[in-house]
Every structure is written in structure tokens, then in C-alpha cells.
Design a protein around this nucleic acid. Sequence first.
DNA 1: CAGTGAGCGAGCTTCCGCTTGACTT
Length: 777
Amino acid sequence: MIENLVIVESPAKAKTIEKFLGKDYKVVSCFGHIRDLATKNLGVDIDNNFEPTYIVSPDKKKLVTELKKLSKEAKTIWLAADEDREGEAIAWHLYDALNLKNKETKRIVFHEITKDAIQKAILNPREIDLNLVDAQQARRILDRLVGFELSPVLWKKIKPSLSAGRVQSVAVRLIAEREKEIMNFQASLSYKTTGTFLNTTDTAFTAILPKNKKDKKEILDLLEACKTADFTVSNKTTKPAKKSPSAPFTTSTLQQEASRKFGFSVAQTMSVAQKLYEAGKITYMRTDSVNLSSLALNTAKAVIEKEFGKEYAKTRNFATKSKGAQEAHEAIRPTYIDKATVAGTDQEKKLYSLIWKRTVASQMSEAQLEKTNVQIAISNHSDTFTAQGEVLLFDGFLKLYRESVDEENEENDTNRLPKIEIGDKLDVQEIISQQKFTHHPARYTEASLVKKMEELGIGRPSTYAPTISTIQKRGYVIKESREGQQREVELIRLVEQEIVAKLKKENYGAEKNKLFPTDIGLIVNDFLVEHFDKILDYNFTATAEKNLDTIAEGKAQWQEMMHDFYTPFHKKIETTLETAERASGERFLGDDPKTGKPVIVRIGRFGPMVQMGVSISKEEEKEGKEKPKFASLLKGQSLGTITFEEALKLFDLPRDLGEYENKKVVAAIGRFGPYIRHDGKFVSLKKDIDDVMTVELDRAIELIEEKKKLDRERFIKAFEEEDIQVLNGRWGPYIKHKKKNFKIPKDVEAKDLTLEDCLELIKNPYKGKAKKKAKKK
DNA sequence: CAGTGAGCGAGCTTCCGCTTGACTT
């Protein structure tokens, strides 16, 4: 008999809480949601007032059986899922699925995992809030209806297996629209003027003209005037300023900072954080809250006073700024703030240290600055130079932590100014006017997309990383780096009474790990925006959230809200299915100069392609009419931007390179990119080195030989009589038998394996640490 | 798994939000 059974969502949490509660309490975890809508027939009975059908998720069946058993034995059951909409629903699903209505069941909540908070929670149990549960059901059903009615429209009108949803489609829209802004962006040029001056004691500093000039003649006039001008300090102002630390980390700010400082992908950040959490080193990592427990505040204060001194400590409470925050947890912070470092992998150490610094800095004093602004008049010209200086009077939190910023753009014009007073006469060393291009808006990184999604209130801490991986998996978006290009800008310099102009090369347009929309992403987005503007509206989720809040307050019925949404939505689905054209992104490029046939680009069954000639029907083919020719677009090319010339070149593939060892050598492009085929074997071309359009026979032979050598090294041994090979693979040596692969235990030398060993491993496959084979389809 | 771009059309795909492992040739 168990006295008390406490069910929480996370197993790591269960472990900690059990320690706090003592031996009368058994604490177990339900691993999040245990049931979900059935996938058959939507899982929603539209005609029966949107009645949902819930089933226990397949991977939770065993767990639910186990929980049922435990709850039968227990006297009192405490449902301690998180205090937010999803948590309330989890509690209710447990109540329902475990059949707890005849048991003593209590609902408790806490926002921080401290002994104090848990004990308080136990003293204040309540009922399950059915209004909040209804709000969750409404959210779930809305998402199901949108996703499962919208996606099939795409299958019919664009391509099978595509997907659309309240969150992912808006995420794709952000990226698609940003790309269009960039495509339509016209860079403009203007001259930025910087002067280097000497103060009365000959110390140099720089000042700029606050406004850039477009006109070269104006610049030349100015520089000409400066040749003979006197420069006088006409004004000087100083004012105090302060900088305050940022709030402790939430999921989204942690993802952003880890991306900016370490280049982590959002998934990487989450998996490292998960490890730290499971090891008890940080608090829960999927949170939208910036709150710290009072215990954490006290420890932070003590740590700061000890490490930096009393004047560096300042206890603060931060308020959330993000839309729709539910704040069921604390901010992400070290469990023990007095530990500045932890053991672990490099990544774990780095991320922990970042979390520690951010948390501690959030409880430190502001930095005190003094900002100085100096105006320098030109005696024979109406323009005025401006110098800006910043002096740090007290470093405060900056002693520990400095947040990074997104844009690598714009050099900083602030410098440390020497002693300058009003009326000082200054000498000029040089004045440089350099042409500057305006920049297009920055493409999104994974992390800056998360930031934007959070601003719009779409997605949740637990879904940011999975959503970003979904839109990439569907092929809507691709994360890429692209090389920059060079261009020339003019630089006009006045030094020692002489004006000299020259051209300077600069790099621009290089992108590192940015999100680009693909052709299919752009086509799907255009289609959805055209036909389902309401769902694709950036405010759709925010508005829905307001309705959900009303339901949670008990002031509205969820079925009514669903009805109001669904009726027009479903009608739109039907008319779109009936009336909308198939969307293929088709574009006519021109007529082939050799044959006169039309050349078009469009999305085909296998992605973006170029087609020469008109499509024909089966009958026409029988009659001997000529079929059109097809070729896939290369990586980096897109339907919207490919030129006629580039498109024509694609028909040059496959290219015949000649013969080697009496066999033909051919260069072409396949599913995995550019390759060379020789004697029935394929060799990939080297990215960034080889060009499939120009590669020659000599190089091809080099690659073929290289591959042959690798294949030889791949081979360890074979037992031909049993069709067994021992080979070197990506994850080390393995056994290959009749097209199936088998693992080799770590402590076994692959080259010492005997035939008997191999047969044994094939009969009883070694599974590593795994206990059982998980079926997954 | 390195061709293909369509033919009949069965049967499949798909959502968001909670949680962790399992597992890749």
C-alpha cells in the first residue's frame, strides 16, 4: 500500500521532489501528455459538437498501465502537472485515463522546485480547473482541424506529404517574406565622412559627419573647404547613463545567446541543456518565465557580495515581456548558484557557464556611464563634425557578462575621448569619405526566428526547436551558408592638404547558417497566403489566445468558439479544393535558340526542374510525338531567379567525359548531388572544389581512384561462403550479411572476428545498451 | 541510393505541445 502517489511530468523533477517529501510519498512521472486525439477521422466529430476522441499514445501504453496499477494501490493521488493550460489538461487526462473518480485525488501546483514551495503546495490542494482544461482542448482541436484540413489541400494542389499548420506555416511565411524583401531591396550608396582630429595636447580621436552625403560634388566641396579651415569645438555635453542587465534566461533567450556566442543550433542548445537538467545542474530548460525563486535570489546575492563586493549586488525581479507567457516554471538558472562551473563535456561547461553568468549578472548593479557629445565647427563650411565618447564610471554587471547582439552590422562610432573643451582649436590629421551601401534586412538564423516567433506568440518553449526542424524536414526552408561577393567602393581622402580618390574592394553578402526559403516553400507560402490569409495572419494565434483565455475564465464555451472558427474555415477549404489552380511555380523563360521549343521552369514530382518542349498526353506519345526534355535545378538555383542561359546549360548533363579502363566516364547530377559514374560505380564530386559543368577526365580519374582506395580500406575481411563481410562504416566496423547490417560489441577487435563469432552475432544481434527493440515506423 | 517528371488509382502523408530515450551504415 502506498500512502501518497504524486504524479509529475518530468522524471528528473520526480527524483528531486521525492527527496523533499520523504518516505510517505512515492513520486512518479507521466512523461508529458499521455493521450492525444486519434488520427483516424480527424479525432474530432464535427457534427457532434466537435466531440474529441482521445486515445492513449502508443508509446505511453505501458506507462499508463503501470500508473494505473500504482494508483490502485495508493490511498491519495496528487496530480502535480505544471500549472499552465497543458499541465491542467495532463492532470485531467490522468484523472480520466487512470479512472481516479472514486479515489482521493488532489491537484497541486508549484512554480519552483524548492522544498518550501513543494510543502506549501501539498498544504494547498485544489480541484482540476475544468475551464482551463476546456481551453486546452479547444487549442488542441483547433490545431488538429487546421493542420488536418489544410495539409490535404496542399497534397492535391501542390505535392503529396506537404504540411501546413498554425505555427509552422507562419514560421515559413516569415522566412519567405524576408527573402522577398531582400530580393526587392535596392541598395543605395552614400558617402560616410570620418575625421581624425588632435586635441590641444596632440591626442587623436575620431569624429563623423552625422549625415551621409549622396552627392560626390558635395563631398569634394567639403574636403576642399577643410584644406584651409579652422576646426573649433563649438559645443560639448556630458550626461550620465546607465545600462541594466538582461533578465535571466528563458528558452528563447538561451537559444539566441547560445547561437550568437557559440554558434549552437537551437536543437543543440536544447539537448545540451537537457543533459544539464537531468544531471540536476540547472532548472527546467523549457520555460517562458524570467522569475527566480527567493532561494535563488538570496544565493545570488551572497555569491555576488563575496565575489565582487557589496556594491555589485542588486536584487531584481523581472517581469515577462513575451506574449502568451504561461510561466509555469522558473527562469533557466543553475540549481546551485554558488557553483560557477561544472564538470561535463565542453559544450555542457560552456552552456552552464553562460547560464551561470546570465543569472548572476541579472542580480548585479547597473553599469554607470558618462556619455559625451562634442560638436566641431568648420570655419568655412556649414557642416559640423560630431564625436561621441563613453566612459565607464562603474562596471556593475558588465564585470561578469555582456549580452551579444544579432546584427554583425555597423561599426561602432563611439570611442574614448581625450580631454576636449568648448573653444579648443583642433588640428585635423585626415578626413576620409567612404562610400557605404545600405544593407538589406538580415536573413533569419534559427535563433532569430525563434525570437520573432516568441514576439508573435506562436509556438511554445517546448516546440521552438521541433518546429524549426519540421520546416526544414518538409523542405520549405534550408539552413545554408553562402559565400560573399566583392564589389568596389570609392574612398576619398584628405591628408596633408591633398585630396586623393581611390577604389577599395569590400566583401558583402556572405551568409553563415541562415534560413533560406526553398522553391517549394515559396510556392506553398504564396498558395496559403492567397487562399487562407486568416490562418497565415501574424495575429491569428494572438487572437485565438484571447478567445482561449475567455474560455479559461469560464466566460465562453469552447464549442461555440470552435463553431465560429470552423464554419467559415471549412467552407474556404471546400471552395479552394474546387476552384484553386494547381500551384507549380511555372515560369516561361524563352524559346530554345536551337530547336525553337519553349523552355519553362516549374516544380515537378521530384522538385524544381526545367522543361524543354510541351508536355504531351499518352495518346500523343503513341502517335510518335516527341516527349519534352527535363532536367533538375542545381542546388542554389531557384525557380524565381534562374536565368534562361543557366536553364539551357542544365540540358548539357549528363556529360560524357571520355573513357577510362575501357569504360565510359560520365558526369551528372543525382539525388545526392553531382557525381561521376564509371563502370557502374558512383563517385560524388567534391563540394566547392569540382564543378559538374567543367570537370574533366583527369580529375574524374583522380576521384575514381580515391574512391577505390577508400573502398579497399573499408574492407576488413570476408567469409564468402556465408556471404559475410566485415566492413568499416561511418560508426566504426560492422558486419554485413545478406544486405543486413549488424553491430560489433565495442570490446571486440573487428579484424580478429572468426566466422563463428560472426554467425553468433548474426543469430543474436548485439544491441549495445538498448534493452529492447523499439518498433518505429 | 545517383532513371524519373505519368498512367489507373489504392493507401499513405498531415497538426501542436507535453515529455524522454532509441537509434542511425
